[in-house]
């Protein structure tokens, strides 16, 4: 058998020596973790190769098709996307209503607005729904999964717990917010507003939420989760109700507009 052509056997042409590796290991580990996904995060939607999946199993071609399809259902206006980091990872927390698929349509809309892949949290791990949702950018609802994606420089959308009341926000999972703290990325509140019978929807990204107190322990994530919830609530109040332009707007029902 003839040896096929191989690259030069020059040892470790891409090996970088670290003479002071040992002493700098802890620091470089932390920095490295936070920046390890830079190359992935700067990938633009338009630059993504079709016919393959990315490091997390997201299929750019399928996402592109679904984005086009979702535009038939929703006409989403995105605001505040300029607040999101250009390269680093970030966690976006959005309000959600039952069956509104807010994290998914928010991820699609923000992805289109910032021209970067955006993941959402909440895929099951059972075929065929789980693998399908992984193909469109879904992640498991597990703090380590979210922390890994954020550390790799990904934008990740999570939904607060469902709340059917108008302009109310459900609880925000503090463990997932803790993942953002662990990865050293910012947490952004996102107010979503959609209409079950109309096409208009809106996603508004607020300024990064910051806890008022410095905590060293797990209280940091609890307080930050509460803070994000308050910020989303305030943003929903500012957004007001969506109007359908029909007499339904006069009815005192809470299912339309708002959250």
């Amino acid at each position: 058998m003839a040896p096929p052509s191989r690259r030069s056997s020059t040892p470790a042409s891409k090996v970088v020596n670290f003479p002071v590796r040992r002493s700098a290991e802890i620091a470089s580990d932390a920095v490295g973790r936070a920046t390890s996904g830079l190359t992935a995060s700067v990938t633009r939607l338009t630059d993504e190769r079709h016919g393959i999946v990315d490091d997390w199993g997201r299929d750019p071609a399928l996402v592109r098709r679904l984005m086009t399809l979702s535009q038939l259902r929703w006409n989403v206006a995105v605001g505040g996307d300029q607040r999101l980091p250009k390269r680093k990872g970030a966690l976006i927390v959005v309000n959600a209503r039952p069956y509104a698929l807010a994290p998914i349509f928010a991820a699609f809309a923000v992805s289109e607005a910032v021209d970067r892949p955006v993941r959402f949290v909440g895929r099951p791990d059972t075929a065929p729904i789980g693998p399908l949702m992984r193909r469109i950018g879904g992640l498991l609802e597990h703090p380590d999964e979210v922390a890994g994606a954020l550390a790799a420089g990904e934008l990740v959308v999570i939904g607060a717990h469902h709340d059917t009341r108008l302009r109310q926000v459900g609880l925000v999972d503090h463990a997932l917010v803790g993942a953002a703290l662990l990865a050293g990325v910012s947490v952004y509140p996102g107010a979503t507003s959609s209409n079950p019978i109309g096409r208009n929807a809106r996603v508004e990204i607020g300024a990064a939420s910051r806890s008022t107190r410095k905590r060293r322990g797990p209280l940091a994530e609890l307080e930050l989760a509460d803070r994000v919830r308050e910020d989303i609530h305030r943003m929903l109040d500012e957004m007001g109700n969506l109007r359908t332009g029909t007499p339904i707007d006069w009815l005192p029902i809470s299912g339309l507009g708002g959250a």
């Binding site: 690259r7 470790a12 891409k14 090996v15 970088v16 020596n17 670290f18 590796r21 290991e25 470089s28 580990d29 490295g32 973790r33 390890s36 996904g37 490091d55 997390w56 199993g57 890994g148 550390a151 790799a152």
Partner: peptide, 19 residues
């Protein structure tokens, strides 16, 4: 079930990037 793994430490700890 798939088989993926994070390779960030390869560069950070070993100092190499897969070719």
């Amino acid at each position: 079930r798939g088989r993926l793994a994070d390779n960030g430490a390869m560069r950070d700890v070993l100092g190499i990037v897969p070719e």
